[in-house]
Design a protein around this nucleic acid. Structure first.
Lengths: 239, 239
DNA sequence: TAGGATTTGTGCGTATGTATT
DNA sequence: TAATACATACGCACAAATCCT
């Protein structure tokens, strides 16, 4: 078996268990997007339709739908005769996406803010716990995973579904850049900063102040972009 | 020939002339989105893959890609055994999209505003001229067409490409609602209001004040949503 | 320059799901 | 309830484009 070992449960089994085409699509889409975001497939990786279809235990047709949507999302690029490649993440291009995300995060606090019930508070408490664990043992994969999961938690602070949908697309366009740019030496520092963000936002959520949470998030996005830029400059600088 | 007569040039010929798969996809996607937006295919219309593939002179496979992306855009819904149906436009659901569009339009004036060169000024002058023509002879199709074209002109006021992309998706999710809700009796009034908006924005663009243009646009979106709501209430009210 | 290997794109037949009779 | 009609979903073979030798 030459499948990408990502600690995922058997995808082929999941797909077989799914009863409708839409469920099967959703599984494939989520799995592939996750692998791209977690750099299981780093930028430039070629995804073979035949190989993936083999791993998933299906034919190319249903798989192609997932690949095509991911291409529309900007995560893949398919070209006849060449292949399906994971797109590159270039900070210069992604800076605009980042700016847009910053502004839109403020909307989370203004457009249909959700009311903080027990479930939501508990969710953010879990995030805080995971952040504390990560701080004790910084690790790239866990950092990326928490980044993704915390994003989804934050999403629940607004009841405006279109805002959620748009934010999600933009998030997945940018989130890979952290794993690609953070040098191993700086991981603990980034983890520490991220933990501070999670703690601050969780505190704001705990007292039901979603607008404050949104502003904190916005501030950290802004500072994050600045740090990313400096990381990139350091990387591009001549030795 | 049982093709939808929309005054379009022969699509099959265009598709045959296109040299790459991506071009062919773009043609099919644009044509179908336009037909949905112009209510050539009103909400609830069933689009047969076989019939459309026949009209376009291709097989179902490449057509399906266009349909799948339009489904991801929220304009279509495909279900096995049922068919591919044009989605309904419900003001209650679309109100959130409208709110989001309002806020995002303000960003057009703040995020990477374009500089107004001669080409852009000329484009908006054309819009003004078309608005004046429409005011003389109000007509539903021309109104909808100008609404779409003016949107695309307005898009060019920002150089933030992600903002453009997101705005476009949101626009096409909502623009059909005007044609579905405006009673024929109110068409001239809506045309008049729309013309005033175009005139005001064109004036702002002419002096290079994109931020002002964005605020005017935002104000009209807000008032438009209010009028749509009242139209819907009038429609839903018992006789 | 030519040809073979490899990739995605396309066409078409069949499987599967839904609604109706 | 079963059978039929008809829709999309799927699988597979081949076409077309690209790259490398």
């Amino acid at each position: 078996m030459s499948m990408a070992d990502t600690g995922e449960p058997d995808i082929a089994a999941q797909l077989e268990a799914a009863s409708t085409a839409q469920e099967r699509f959703q599984i494939m889409y989520s799995v592939l997007r996750d692998r791209i975001s977690m750099l299981v497939y780093p930028p430039g990786t070629q995804l073979s339709e035949e190989v993936l279809a083999g791993e998933f235990g299906i034919s190319r047709s249903p798989l192609r739908k997932a690949l095509q949507i991911l291409e529309a999302d900007g995560l893949l690029l398919s070209q006849q005769g060449i292949g399906t490649l994971v797109t590159d993440v270039d900070l210069n291009e992604l800076a605009q996406v980042y700016q847009l995300r910053m502004e839109m995060n403020e909307l989370t606090g203004r457009l249909s803010p959700a009311d903080v019930d027990f479930r939501l508070a508990a969710l953010f408490d879990t995030m805080r716990q995971r952040a504390e664990d990560l701080r004790v043992a910084p690790e790239r994969q866990a950092f990326a995973r928490l980044n993704i999961d915390f994003f989804h938690a934050f999403q629940q602070l607004t009841d405006n579904q279109p805002l959620r949908d748009v934010s999600e697309k933009l998030f997945y366009q940018t989130c890979r850049i952290w794993l690609t740019l953070i040098p191993s030496t700086n991981l603990s520092r980034e983890v520490e900063i991220f933990c501070q963000e999670i703690f601050a936002i969780t505190d704001a959520v705990a007292i039901g102040d979603i607008e404050a949470a949104a502003h904190i998030r916005r501030a950290h996005l802004s500072m994050g972009l600045k740090r990313l830029t400096s990381m990139k400059d350091a990387k591009d600088a001549p030795v």
